[in-house]
C-alpha cells in the first residue's frame, strides 16, 4: 500500500492567517478605537498530496471551516501564503482566480440548501461547466453523466428530477458530482456527512475515498467527529482556536494521541467494548473567544497539565516522531529540561 516516492503536493498553506474585522460599536468608533480582529485562522501550515485525504478535526469555532474556505479562496487570507501546485495563489484575482476556482472545489455540509431547488439535477451539475464555458451541449451532457456515474447515481432516471425528489445522501452525492464535473485537483469537503443519517454516512465517505484514489484528488476532509476521520484519512490535523495543535498520520493520531486536547477528543468517542473501564475525562469550560486569545498556550485555560510556563510562553509545533508534530510544551525536550514541573501524560489508546 505504501506509495514511494510520495506523490506531489497539490495544495500547501504556509503560516496562513485569516483574520476578520469585528464590527466596531458606534461608541468605539467615536472614541477612535480600532475594531478588534477575530483571529479565526492564526498561522497554519499544511500540505496535501495527490491521492491523499487529509482530515481536519476540531470543535466548532476552531477555524477548520475558515481554513477550508481560505484554501479555496472564498476568503482572502490576511497573512501567509497558499500554494497550488507550487504556484502562489494567495492573492490572485480576476482570470487567475477563476482558473483556480476551476481546480479547487468545495462540498458543503448541508445537502438540503446547497442545491438550488429550482434546477434539475442535470442543470445543477452542468452549471459549473457553463460558468467556465466548457464544451458544447452534447459534451457537457456527456460530462454530467460521467460525473453522476462516479457518485453512483443512475443518470438516466435522475437527470430531470429536482433536488426535492432526492434523499439527503443522494443530494450530497449530487453535490460531490457537481464538484467533480470540472475535474478538479483539490476538493474541500466541509463536514460532508455530518447532516446525513449514520446509515448512509459510510457510503458517502466510501465514494470520497474511491474518488481520491481513482482521480488522484487531494481532499481536505473537515469534520468535528474524530471517529469518522479514521475511516478515510491518511493524515489528520487537530485544530484548536485557529491553530493546528497536533498533526500526524491517521494511525498515530487515533491510537497514540499526544496533545492533551487530542487525548480528550479521543476519550470522548464512545467505546464498543462493553466492560472497558475508562477514566471519564471532561474538558472544563468553553473554547476561548478568537477575539480574546489567552497568552501562552491557547489550550492552557482548559488543560489539566497546564503549568506556569503554559500560560506565558506559546508552544511551537515540534516533531515528536516522523510525520508527527505536536504543539505542546510537554513534548518539547528543551522546555521539559528547563521546567521540571512538566509531566508528560500517558497516552491513552482509544
Amino acid at each position: 500500500m505504501d506509495k514511494t516516492p510520495p506523490s506531489p503536493t497539490v495544495i500547501e498553506a504556509r503560516d496562513l492567517k485569516t483574520h476578520f474585522q469585528a464590527r466596531s460599536s458606534l461608541i468605539g468608533a467615536l472614541a477612535g478605537r480600532q475594531p478588534r480582529a477575530i483571529r479565526a485562522l492564526d498561522g497554519v501550515d499544511l500540505a496535501i498530496r495527490r491521492n491523499e485525504i487529509y482530515g481536519l478535526v476540531g470543535e466548532s469555532g476552531s477555524g477548520k471551516s475558515t481554513l477550508g474556505m481560505s484554501l479555496v479562496r472564498m476568503y482572502e487570507p490576511t497573512g501567509g501564503e497558499v500554494h497550488y501546485n507550487g504556484e502562489n495563489i494567495t492573492h490572485v484575482h480576476g482570470k487567475a482566480l477563476k482558473d483556480y476556482r476551476r481546480a479547487a472545489q468545495i462540498i458543503f455540509q448541508d445537502p438540503y440548501s446547497s442545491l438550488n431547488p429550482r434546477l434539475t439535477i442535470g442543470q445543477i451539475i452542468e452549471e459549473p461547466l457553463k460558468i467556465h464555458r466548457i464544451g458544447d451541449a452534447a459534451e457537457r451532457q456527456r460530462r454530467v453523466e460521467k460525473a453522476l456515474e462516479l457518485v453512483r447515481i443512475p443518470a438516466e432516471e435522475n437527470l430531470h428530477r429536482y433536488p426535492s425528489d432526492l434523499s439527503g445522501g443522494q443530494r450530497q452525492r449530487v453535490a460531490i458530482a457537481r464538484a467533480l464535473v470540472l475535474e478538479p485537483q483539490f476538493i474541500v469537503a466541509d463536514e460532508p456527512v455530518s447532516m446525513l443519517d449514520v446509515s448512509i454516512q459510510a457510503s458517502v465517505l466510501e465514494i470520497l475515498d474511491d474518488l481520491s484514489r481513482d482521480l488522484g484528488l487531494a481532499v481536505l476532509y473537515i469534520s468535528h467527529d474524530i471517529a469518522t476521520v479514521g475511516y478515510i484519512c491518511s493524515h489528520v490535523a487537530v485544530m484548536y482556536l485557529g491553530q493546528i495543535v497536533e498533526e500526524g498520520t491517521a494511525e498515530d493520531i487515533l491510537t497514540a494521541p499526544q496533545h492533551p486536547y487530542t487525548q480528550r477528543l479521543m476519550a470522548a468517542i464512545p467505546s464498543i467494548v462493553p466492560d472497558e473501564n475508562r477514566e471519564r475525562v471532561e474538558l472544563k469550560g468553553d473554547v476561548p473567544s478568537p477575539l480574546d486569545i489567552p497568552p501562552g498556550c491557547r489550550f492552557s485555560s482548559r488543560c489539566p497539565y497546564a503549568t506556569e510556563l503554559c500560560t506565558t510562553v506559546e508552544p511551537q509545533l515540534v516533531p515528536t516522531a516522523e510525520a508527527h508534530r505536536v504543539r505542546c510544551h510537554l513534548y518539547d525536550a528543551e522546555a521539559v529540561a528547563t521546567h521540571p514541573s512538566l509531566e508528560p501524560p500517558t497516552s491513552q489508546a482509544a
Binding site: 479555496v72 472564498m74 482566480l97 477563476k98 476556482r101 476551476r102 472545489q105 468545495i106 458543503f108 448541508d110 440548501s113 446547497s114 442545491l115 438550488n116 452549471e127 459549473p128 460558468i131 467556465h132 457537481r178 470540472l182
Partner: peptide, 17 residues
Amino acid sequence: ERIYVKWARAAGASHFH
C-alpha cells in the same frame, strides 16, 4: 445567504450569473 449561492461564487460564477 443560500449555500448554493456561496457555492456558485466558489465555483467561479460572476455576480451577474
